[in-house]
Amino acid sequence: MKTLDPLAGPIAPGVLSKTEQELRTAFLEEIDRIPGGGRLNQCIQCGTCTASCPVSHAMDITPRQVIAMFRAGAIEELLESRTIWLCASCYHCTLRCPAQIQVTDLIYALKRIAIEEGIFPKRFPVHVMSETFTKNVKRYGRNYEVGLLLRYFLRTKPLGLFAQRRAGYALWRHGRIKLRPDKIKNIEQLQKIIAKAETFDLPQEKVAREKVTAAVGYESIGR
């Protein structure tokens, strides 16, 4: 995990640190590949997203501020906030945004950059859930709820498992817990598909990250 660089974020209007420049480039690459990602420019900071978000009260940075912080060039700080990992993908912001910004999909893009770059909020290992989930799918082809939760809690907060015991017992007693994972028959086929698809996700982003743009700050937003 990277520690917060006091020089991260805008040094002066229009001047950004090297890390920020790189993160900005990576993020712009990501949002360029989201349908309607370019609409981010059209945010009028009305706050409809924050007002619609069911979990904004628990966030340290609200969805409206996420866009403002991106524009101000504070992406590293953004990735270190709890906000992006609190999004439950309910799409209320996306539905209501008057500028039709795909806010939920932008949050997904930020999650991917955070995982790729290894930048997370301190003592907040929520991203482990998504990573464990994808490992399960690669191995079995399906998601195994019990295995996913066990692995997640053991890796992040073993005591949390204890807190879930009543819920677990109630589900088990009603025949809703499966004791072994389902594995698909043609797992090799799925693994081949995943391996091929990964070639489109990983290296391209790496290449993009190496270049440092000269034009930073507000100029790069207006493109």
Partner: peptide, 18 residues
């Protein structure tokens, strides 16, 4: 196989679609 749910999209985009 698994649809990918909300978790796969958080890790890799093209793989999630595939």
């Amino acid at each position: 196989n698994c649809c990918g749910a909300t978790a796969y999209m958080s890790v890799q985009k093209t793989v999630a679609f595939a």
